[in-house]
């Protein structure tokens, strides 16, 4: 682990924990997935990568197969994506993305590249100041926000959940997307928005 991350993690661990918090309350520590990913990024830790593989690879396979990809091809995509997680680990930024969001985007990009046989256009990477200290508060806030989002998604009725899953698997046609009315996504949306507002401010600060 490099100094930068070590300091960041120390700061996270020493964050005050209020007595009497409910167990269901928001997380006070970095998620296991984030800790593994940082170990891969900063120390090229193979054990941590194996742990990430154990967690994500079977889920990725299930996720990719849900969009109609046959098992064998799904495993090829899983391989490509997991190798990319190892090779592009330096692009992982816990201030801006959870490990799951980052892997989701790699997987979607990969599936589209396979379909189109050419690279999909992707936004420029944000230039990170190499001397910037990790901001434990920001990393934790993002984890907490994602936790709210997770609960909001878990609370959906199965049919509603199905529609959301299809949309984020790229399965809905435009017509279907525009026909989905009356989804009670207010909660999800407001949760995203809280996260957005914060992310937006942080990102603005990064602008020259």
């Amino acid at each position: 682990m490099n100094d930068k991350t070590a300091r960041g993690l120390a700061a996270v661990r020493s964050m005050p924990r209020k007595e009497g918090d409910r167990v269901q309350s928001t997380p006070r520590e970095l998620s296991q997935e984030t800790v593994w990913m940082l170990a891969v990024r900063d120390r090229r830790d193979r054990m941590a990568f194996a742990a990430l593989f154990d967690h994500f690879a079977p889920r990725l396979k299930g996720f990719v197969m849900r969009s109609g990809t046959p098992a064998e091809q799904a495993e090829e995509i899983v391989q490509d994506v997991m190798l990319k997680v190892w090779r592009k680990a330096d692009l992982f930024d816990p201030h801006r993305a959870q490990v799951s969001s980052w892997i989701y985007q790699i997987a979607r990009n990969r599936q589209i590249d396979v379909l189109r046989k050419e690279s999909r256009p992707v936004p420029e990477e944000l230039a990170e100041d190499p001397d910037a200290e990790p901001d434990a508060g920001q990393i934790l806030a993002l984890e907490q926000e994602t936790d709210h989002l997770r609960r909001a998604l878990t609370g959906l009725k199965p049919e509603q959940r199905e529609v959301i899953e299809k949309a984020y698997l790229g399965e809905l046609t435009h017509q279907e997307i525009s026909d989905q009315t009356g989804l009670p996504l207010g909660t999800v949306k407001s949760r995203i928005r809280i996260g957005l507002d914060r992310l937006r401010k942080e990102l603005k600060d990064l602008q020259p």
Binding site: F56, R59, R66, S100, R108, T146, V188
Partner: peptide, 14 residues
């Protein structure tokens, strides 16, 4: 992308 990530995280493993 965070929504997509949560869905991935909650996907049934195969």
């Amino acid at each position: 992308q965070a929504v997509g990530g949560v869905l991935l995280d909650q996907a049934a493993p195969v």
